[in-house]
Every structure is written in C-alpha cells, then in structure tokens.
Amino acid sequence: MVKCLLLQQIINGLSLGSVYALIAVGFALVFSILKFSNFSHGSVIMLSAYLGLWFSNNFNVGLLPTLLVCILGGGTLAVIIEKIGFKPIRDKEGPLIYLFVVSIAISMFLQYLMTALLGGRFFIYKPLLKTSAWRVAGLTIPVVNLAMLGASVIALAILLYVLYRTTIGIAIRAASTDLFTPNLLGINIDLVVSVTFFISGALAGISGLFLGMSLNVYPQLGGLVMKAFIATVIGGLGSLGGAVIASFMLGLLETMITAYIGGAVTPMVSFAVMILFLLFKPEGVAGLLGLSSGTTTQKL
C-alpha cells in the first residue's frame, strides 16, 4: 500500500512536471534569444485557454480542431504582444529590465482585464476526452496529463527538428548567441524574433488548452509561469534540455513535499532551490549534466 502510494505520487509528480515542461520550453525559447524573462507568456496561456473554451463550446468540435485553434491563436497573440510591447523598447535599445517590467505589466493587464470583464469565476471545458482517468492496479492515471505529456513530447520533437534542420532554425540559433552579428550577415532579425515568439506562443497555446482542461479556466491561470521560470533557472538559463529535465524534477519535488511535509512549505522550498542554484550552480542542471549551457545550441 505504501509502495502504491509512493508510485501514485511519482505519477502525479511526472504529470505536474509535464505541465511545467511545456510552459518552461516556450519561456526558455524567448529567453535564449532576447535574454529576458518573458512573463507575458502566462497571459498567452490564459487567453489561449479562454479561446479554446469559446471555440470548443461554440462550434461543438473535438480535441484536435480546438488544439489547432489554440496553437494558431497563442502564436498570433505572442507575436502581437512582441510587436506592441517589446519591439519599441528593442528599437530604442532600452535596458533589458524594461522588457522584463513590460512583460509583467502586460501579463497583469490582461489578467485584470479578463477579471474585470468576465469576473473571477471558473469556466469548465466540456469533456473533450472520452475518459478522464485510467485506473490501473489501484493507481489513477489522469488522461489529460498523459495527453499533455504526449503533446509535450511531440511539440518538443517538432521544435528540435525546426531548430536543427531548417533555415529559420539555424537563424534562431544564431540569434541566440548574438543578435547583432546575424543582422550584419543579412538575417532579418525582426523576422527571427517574430518566429520565435510565434513558436513560444504556440507552445503556450497547447499548455493553455490542456491546463484549462485539467484545472478549468480562470484569469489567474497564467500564474503557473512562475513555476516555469523556476524550472528554467534550475535547468540552466535558456537551455531547452535543462528546462525539460528541471521541470520534471520540480514537479516530483513539489508533489513529494506536498504529500509528505505539507503544502505550505512547497513554494518556499522551490524558491530556495532556485536561489541555491543561482548562487552556486548558475549553469543549472544543464551544467551539472555536461550539456553546454546558455543557448539552444546544445542537444537535448
């Protein structure tokens, strides 16, 4: 029984980790190019969740069309946010901290706008999946999380293909080392940044749909990006592989602490771990595992 409980906690931890991983990769992708923590990522997740809800309820469609709409919607939204909020500051060569402040302001703005317009209430997705959980030998495996894990793996595989096998991917990797030189070499940096934001937004759209399905839809849904931030830091600044590994570690750690010590100390431990990594191992998990740290140029 005790073993069963532990196994269940590990499953819960891994499902939580898969949520964090999907958010963290989108977050780390923008970080690796523009070198700032983009907190508006959370509001893209939140708005995509509302978009998917509206679309699936109004047009009475299944999971796949809704997923497609969320991907396109999230990507477009992220590009719009980049053009309105970040591009003017980049053009004026303002300090990085301004981009960070604007990203927080945008995320708060959209969150409170949704609260003011729709109220703080929860909206519930109609069941898009046939079963909500599988019960195997006394264990409960939530199907939404399994779908999320599957979607994360597929999305990450496509992302790796784009980054390593296409021209735009090479441009993105070049931009992640240095924004200025590729520009001199004739790469359209604005286009590269827009594509990066689109990919990041598309990942946020996927996260938004699945988060909305498992946690319902409410204006503070994007707050989970804080966990993704912690995972990105622990993973090693801007390293995609590190972010994925750290997301699962964080998910497991949080589930174990909540189960065996208590929910109140969980946020403290997460932040403490992050600060310890920042102080003593800034290269993060990627550095510990010998993945070269810093940019997206390393393999998973």
């Binding site: 003017p88 500051i89 301004y98 604007v102 302001a105 703005f109 409170y112």
Partner: peptide, 20 residues
C-alpha cells in the same frame, strides 16, 4: 480594485513604450 489594476498596468505599459 480590478479596474484600478487594469489602469495601473496600462499606464506602465504606455509609459515604458513611449516615455521610458
């Protein structure tokens, strides 16, 4: 409280973009 925060955050976005 909600509209106050909407206005606050809107102010900061506009300030940072047009007059940092």
């Amino acid at each position: 409280a909600e509209w106050r925060m909407v206005i606050y955050t809107f102010i900061i976005i506009v300030t940072m973009i047009f007059r940092p």
